[in-house]
């Protein structure tokens, strides 16, 4: 896999890599894809797949109290007046 494709994947993954790391990933990916290609090239009799939604066992749709906001925000890195602070996204 070439560096450009790896860079695209890094962008999709919201990850940053140094040039060296990108090269390492590029080399590693060939062996990872060799493994994944076993499935791609496999001949199997069926093509249907399991719909996980069928397996769900949902509780009754009733409103319940949720966790208090101050507790929910205990692990949040930057908080001001019960709100999460982020840099502005509009120029």
């Amino acid at each position: 896999m070439d560096i450009k494709e790896i860079e695209h994947l890094a962008e999709l993954s919201k990850l940053e890599f140094s040039t060296e790391e990108l090269e390492e990933f590029s080399n590693e990916f060939s062996s990872l894809l060799e493994l994944a290609d076993i499935v791609k090239n496999a001949e199997i009799s069926g093509s249907s797949f399991i719909n996980s939604i069928d397996m769900l066992n949902l509780r009754e749709d009733k409103a319940k109290d949720s966790m208090p906001v101050d507790i929910l925000l205990e692990n949040t890195p930057v908080v001001k007046k019960d709100c999460i602070v982020v840099p502005r996204i509009m120029e």
Partner: peptide
């Protein structure tokens, strides 16, 4: 944004995602 770690070097939202995760 939500869980404990945010990069000190992030200046905008995209950088918050990328630098914190990286």
């Amino acid at each position: 944004v939500k869980y404990t770690t945010r990069s000190d070097d992030a200046r905008n939202l995209q950088e918050i995602y990328k630098k914190s995760r990286s």
